[in-house]
Write a protein that binds this DNA or RNA. Structure first.
Lengths: 192, 192
DNA sequence: TGTATTTCTTGATTTGTATCAAGGCACGCC
DNA sequence: GGCGTGCCTTGATACAAATCAAGAAATACA
């Protein structure tokens, strides 16, 4: 698999076209970090230090309830942005965990640098608005899907659009994301 | 109840401080509309014409499933912004309904005018980002609350922070919002 | 290659909530 | 004031999914 240098810029420009100069300024502020399978990038109570873009691998974002069971709220695959935006944007302790489900690499930018880009360039300010909008509308679609389809249909639809990468991820993570027990998901699978 | 002329500006300035000139430009673009109990402001399939600010009364936003039952996704009370943001922002058909649960009034702005403000003033662009962020983080909190607490605790918490106005709204709407049948909610209430 | 550990499947039972059904209460209207 | 129409409550039953419990399969690792 190849990761072209334009990958990050292209991801930004899906929402807003950038000028070369402002992109150069932005790009220099990202650093590459690497992560290994099962590594926790952010823990509950910590302030999210980075906003990420996944170059390779998979991240999950989950909530750990007081009685100890985790609920996965979302995945970030190669080519997605990632991180606990909430904690990052407000610089307050996170209620979520960010965990790598595979090894891989990501671009990372700090809050100070991101704020600088928002302050300095209207294009980035707009990108920020459109990005958050994109996340919000995605959540909305998911919410409606959850309401309008049965557990079985939901699972079928999920499997259909599930990236290759997820195929080799433990079933319990997928069950957690679909808000059901691994047993239930296993039975759903067997039913066809 | 009194609605001061500064109400709308104050709502904007909770997120970003505005200059007098830009506020004057913005304010002139809002018009006041009034609505009556049960009025549908936006229907599924329509493009949301306005972004609203509720001066008085209550709006609900709901999804109507193919088999005809509605799920309330949120309420907007006096002093809240309202509308199908998704449809408004993307100018595509709405999947949601916006309905007045009481009579009242709202400020309304069109997509063209809102876009003008975003294009023209960096402060509004930023306001847009922070506003969407606010909505997103609110949804996140609700999602976590739904996952980490039982139906009973959820209902208790909801009643506790429920604005005065909701007290006189039919139980079935609240049940719908809490994603349970009116019977279940009634039984939960009786249990204390 | 063999053993340990994790992950997945399958079965039996319990539980929470929906559904179906009927009765009570309250408010508006003639 | 009596009556009708919503709205809420209460009861009986049904059902989907969770839980509890083993065992099978796959994977990691020595």
């Amino acid at each position: 698999m190849l990761y072209f240098c334009g990958m990050l810029r292209a991801a930004f420009e899906q929402l807003v076209k950038l000028e070369d100069a402002e992109w150069a300024d932005a790009e220099s502020r990202f650093k590459t970090i690497s992560f290994v399978k099962d590594q926790l990038l952010t823990r509950e109570g910590e302030i999210e230090p980075y906003f990420y873009f996944v170059k390779s691998g998979v991240h999950s974002m989950y909530y750990l309830s007081p009685d100890g069971d985790e609920t996965i709220l979302g995945f970030s695959f190669t080519g997605n942005f990632s991180g606990a935006y909430d904690s990052f944007s407000t610089q307050t302790p996170s209620r979520l965990y960010i965990q790598a489900l595979t090894s891989g690499e990501a671009f990372a930018i700090t809050y100070a640098d991101m704020s600088y880009l928002f302050d300095r360039y209207k294009n980035f300010e707009r990108w920020g608005r459109l990005f958050i909008q994109h996340i919000l509308f995605g959540r909305g679609r998911r919410e409606i899907e959850m309401l309008s389809t049965s557990a079985e249909e939901r699972h079928k639809a999920f499997v259909a659009r599930m990236p290759q990468e997820l195929q080799q991820i433990p079933l319990r993570h997928i069950a957690s994301y679909l808000n059901m027990t691994p047993e239930t998901l296993s039975r759903l699978r067997a039913k066809r």
